[in-house]
Design a protein around this nucleic acid. Structure first.
Lengths: 364, 364
DNA sequence: CGCCTGTGAGTAACCAGTTTCTAACATTGC
DNA sequence: GCAATGTTAGAAACTGGTTACTCACAGGCG
């Protein structure tokens, strides 16, 4: 890197000590006024000096202000070009009070749900010329909020997927987090829009489908106990009438579902409702290993419709969640909020049932 | 649950008069000198004034400098606390010339390979108190580099997964991108460490496994044409002796593999080598739909060992890549580089063959 | 008792931009 | 011919920290 500073065409080597490294050297003391060349990357001052104009004018040119004479502007642009000038992002942040960045806080980057929100948000924000900070809060729920606060100090707005942080904590911090948008969750009395999934409706669709097929004995592969989504899905299942429900502690990953296969068989349910598609895929494989036919002997359903769900064997009946769209929408809301407009109201997306081949009539 | 917002104690329906929001009110205008309270968020100056010390002292206290009298320090801390003071991240960036941020540039966030690097990097960087900017360069190869450059201006270092940008372009920009680490790719004569996968060795393992099973006629489901990884894998296959190879244009996603199933059958190969696990999973499903038995009639292999590969049916024989580890290592290298140390040499990870059930003896 | 040294805190000069005034000049109107 | 108006571009005051100097004061030593 430093090497190439060497071979430049002769305009370098301004007399005396071209070496002056650390910016702000003794040099500035005696000859600061008209000194040789700061040697570091070009600043607005060096461009101004080179073009023989004031810093204000350079700033105006760089920002496309129309009130600069075209000819002068051209001269400034030429000088900037010649010096490889790029405005310092840090200085602009400070001066403008704007970072051009938003942050996404998620509990777990390995979860396709959050990956898709990330994608949707990344693309939408990118299109608007905004950068994206990603924070994973794997740790305890308290950490979730601390990380969010910390991220917030480096950006203009937040998208928060905080399934575990208690409602009260979010409410008391909401002022310091603002502007922000909540995803996959809804908190009453929070001054921020939220985008969530109607888990009750999703489970409702699944239950309706399964009961229509004659299933009465269901097993639920429960997600992480602290997850708000899991609580809602479980509550919705419990509320369904005429069902005999067995709740099996499970988790959210393939392996968890896989490990639960034996318990599923043992509990004698004719249909398994997975907390999400990953545990459902896992249990599918586990059941096959136990020589249980799906859907012949046991039906299986998932939740989320991750990309994979179409490619399990048999393809998974599940409920589809517009995770990407959530990310996009989160951007729209956040953008509005950052511009002082309203972020709109809470939206609750309705999952859509996708019947594939992992569900069938209950065995008689 | 909208319902619950209803019945609870009347904390909703804020009277809405107390909402005098916009920070930076007219107040500061007239009495700015010694006025009541600047109204905006506290700055180092307001804390200094409140504590009756200079800004320098506040700065020293906030940064834990030992050269402040404990009693004074306590007074400053109390003032900071009372004012809810938080140092401005933007100002610190400018003054310190450090952002405390690194960026990851990936072509595609929906690819598990990059998702895992993201995770590894996020966790390692997070542990070091560093924030992570994520950039997706979905667009054309030129965009890849432009986005990297842009991201670089807002952080202290880059991790670059740029499978498509031409070598030369990277070389000519390497000075402006530095410090950075390249992943999933190696470019000769680049002043940056790279972490890559030995694709040739991976294909070698797969070929050895398949030939040992008696396969001679192979089909390769090719990845994106511009992908450097695809080129290496294809070259390695072509270099394998004694094989009859059919190259089928495919892609990198489930659907691409799924769509290629018919062509696989048609070409008469006894084994299919997928560019990655996703196309392999896709083709697995496609083959089942065509009533082709795997591995009875056709064997299938993948590449990468994504989490799902264990859960396809049959479980996918593939080659494992330590994507997470790549992310972690990328952090280590980058950290070293940012501290002026050497980033170490290029490392090429050796994939490990995982034999599962999607491969079997060639039909005779 | 006076000089030297060490410590703690303040002053002011940075970091690199943006933006509000203001001044100089040209143009227009009466 | 002079005042009023309208451009440009510059000076200087911000944005909010950090830190190299400097200085005052206290204690140790000759």
């Amino acid at each position: 890197m430093k090497a190439s500073a060497q071979d430049r065409d002769g305009d370098d080597e301004r007399k005396e000590a071209g070496s002056g490294r650390a910016p702000g050297q003794a040099a500035g003391r005696i000859a600061g006024r008209r000194g040789p060349r700061p040697a570091g990357p070009a600043t607005i001052s060096s461009v101004a000096a080179a073009a023989g104009v004031s810093r204000a004018t350079v700033s105006r040119v760089m920002n496309g202000s129309p009130s600069v004479h075209p000819e002068l502007a051209a001269r400034v642009r030429a000088a900037a070009e010649a010096l490889d000038y790029e405005p310092s992002a840090a200085a602009r942040r400070l001066a403008l009070g704007r970072t051009g960045t938003v942050a996404l806080v998620v509990p777990d980057l390995s979860n396709p749900l959050f990956q898709n929100v990330l994608r949707g948000l990344s693309q939408a924000a990118g299109k608007a010329g905004c950068q994206l900070l990603v924070v994973e809060s794997d740790e305890d729920p308290e950490e979730e909020v601390v990380l969010a606060l910390e991220a917030r100090r480096n950006c203009d707005g937040l998208v928060l997927a905080s399934p575990r942080a208690p409602d009260g904590r979010l409410r008391e911090l909401s002022e310091r987090l603002a502007p922000f948008v909540l995803v996959y969750r809804e908190v009453a009395g929070l001054g921020a829009p939220s985008l969530s999934i109607d888990n009750r409706a999703g489970i409702g669709e699944i239950v309706a489908h399964l009961t229509a097929l004659g299933h009465r004995r269901l097993a639920y592969l429960a997600g992480p106990p602290a997850s708000a989504g899991n609580a809602e899905r479980l509550a919705a299942l419990r509320a369904a009438p005429g069902l005999e429900l067995t709740v099996l502690p499970c988790g959210s990953m393939f392996d968890h579902g896989h490990a639960a296969a034996a318990a599923v068989v043992e509990c004698g349910a004719s249909a398994v409702v997975g907390f999400n598609d990953m545990v459902a895929s896992g249990v599918l494989t586990g059941l096959r290993e136990l020589n249980v036919r799906v859907p012949g002997e046991v039906s299986v359903t998932g939740f989320d419709d991750i990309a994979f769900a179409r490619y399990t064997s048999p393809p998974l009946t599940t409920v589809s969640i517009p995770a990407n769209e959530l990310g996009r929408q989160a951007w729209e809301r956040l953008w509005a909020l950052m511009n002082g407009e309203s972020g709109g109201y809470n939206v609750r997306y309705q999952p859509r049932l996708l019947v594939r081949d992992s569900t069938g009539p209950a065995p008689s």
